[in-house]
C-alpha cells in the first residue's frame, strides 16, 4: 500500500516536471553551435524569436531532446528532421506560419505537451491520435475547421484548447477523452452543444463563449466536476434545469445571450459564487428572485 503510494507520488512528480523545461536541472541551449558542442546529453533547446525559416541543421542528431521551443519564427512547414526526435515531450511551435501539421507528427509518441497556437493551421492529421501520452494540446488561434476522429485516442488529454478556430462540430471519438479537465471551444462556429461532450466526466473548465449555441442539453447534468462554465455571447434563450444542479459549479457566465428567466429552483447551485448575466433581457423581478435564491453568490446583471 505504502509502496504504491510512493510510486504514485513519484509518477505525479515525473509528470509535473516532464512537461516543462527546467533550466536549473539541465541546460537549455539557445543555438545549434552550443548544443552540438555540449559534452553531455542535450535535452532542452529554446529557439524562440530566432528568425528561422527552416529547422536548424543537425537538429535530428539531438536524439535526447525532450523540450523544444520554436515559438516566434517564420516556419511555414515542419521538416522531417523534427519527427526523428522520438524522445520529445514538449514541443512549442506557437506563432509561426504553419498551414498544417504533417502526418509524421504521429511519430512523436512521447509528446506530453504540444503548443501550436497562433499559426494558420487548417488541417490536422489523423495521426495526431498516435500521441497517446499527450496531456496538453493547445491549438488556439488557427483556422481549424475539424479535429481528426482519432483525437479520442489521446486518452491522457487533460487540456484541450481549440479556441479561435472555425470549428462547428467535434468528432464522435472525442467522448473517449475521459480525463479531460479543461475544454476551451470559445470563438468558434458552434451552433449546437453536442450531448456527447457531456461524456467528459472530469471536466472542470468549459469555455464556449462567443459561439452561436442556442440551447444546452439536459445531459449537462453529467458535468459533476464542472467548476467554471463560460457560456456568454451565444444565442441561448434559457438554460436547462440540469445546469443549475451542478454542485461544484463556482462561476457561471451567461452574459450576452437572450435569456429572460432562469430555472425556478436554483438551490442546487450550492457552490456558485459568481453568476454573470449582463446583456440579457431579464426582468427586474427575475433578477431579484435570482439574487434572493443565491445568497452566497455575486450576481452581475
Amino acid at each position: 500500500m505504502k509502496v504504491t503510494l510512493i510510486i504514485a507520488a513519484l509518477l505525479i512528480t515525473f509528470i509535473t516536471f516532464a512537461q516543462n523545461a527546467n533550466p536549473l536541472k539541465e541546460p537549455v541551449y539557445g543555438s545549434m553551435e552550443s548544443a552540438l558542442a555540449a559534452k553531455g546529453k542535450v535535452t532542452q533547446l529554446n529557439f524562440r524569436d530566432k528568425g528561422l525559416f527552416h529547422l536548424p541543421e543537425g537538429l535530428s542528431t539531438l536524439q535526447s531532446l525532450h523540450f523544444l521551443n520554436l515559438m516566434g519564427n517564420n516556419l511555414e512547414r515542419l521538416e522531417d528532421d523534427l519527427f526523428e526526435l522520438k524522445e520529445l515531450e514538449v514541443l512549442t511551435i506557437k506563432l509561426n506560419a504553419l498551414k498544417y501539421l504533417p502526418k509524421k507528427m504521429g511519430n512523436l509518441t512521447n509528446l506530453i505537451n504540444l503548443d501550436a497556437t497562433d499559426n494558420s493551421i487548417a488541417h490536422l492529421p489523423n495521426e495526431l491520435g498516435n500521441l497517446t501520452k499527450l496531456v496538453y494540446l493547445h491549438l488556439s488561434f488557427n483556422e481549424i475547421s475539424s479535429l481528426p476522429q482519432s483525437i479520442g485516442n489521446c486518452k491522457n488529454l487533460e487540456v484541450l484548447e481549440v479556441n479561435s478556430n472555425q470549428l462547428s462540430y467535434l468528432p464522435q471519438g472525442i467522448s473517449k477523452l475521459k480525463k479531460l479537465k479543461t475544454l476551451n471551444l470559445s470563438y468558434n462556429q458552434f451552433n449546437e452543444f453536442d450531448s456527447e461532450w457531456t461524456a467528459f466526466k472530469n471536466l472542470e473548465t468549459l469555455n464556449l463563449e462567443y459561439n452561436h449555441i442556442k440551447e444546452l442539453p439536459q445531459a449537462v447534468s453529467n458535468f459533476k466536476n464542472l467548476k467554471l462554465a463560460m457560456l456568454n455571447n451565444n444565442r441561448l434563450t434559457g438554460v436547462p434545469r440540469e445546469l443549475v444542479t451542478l454542485p461544484k459549479l463556482q462561476l457561471l457566465s451567461l452574459a450576452n445571450n437572450n435569456i429572460t428567466v432562469l430555472p425556478k429552483d436554483l438551490s442546487g447551485l450550492t457552490g456558485l459564487r459568481t453568476l454573470i448575466l449582463v446583456g440579457n433581457p431579464i426582468a427586474k423581478a427575475e433578477i431579484s428572485r435570482i439574487k434572493a435564491s443565491l445568497p452566497n453568490c455575486q450576481v452581475y446583471f
Binding site: 473548465t205 469555455n207 467548476k227 467554471l228 463556482q250 462561476l251 457566465s253 459564487r273 459568481t274
Partner: peptide, 11 residues
C-alpha cells in the same frame, strides 16, 4: 475563488 482568479480577465 481560484476559479475567479483563473478567469479574471474574461470576467
Amino acid at each position: 475563488t481560484q476559479v475567479e482568479r483563473n478567469t479574471l480577465n474574461a470576467i
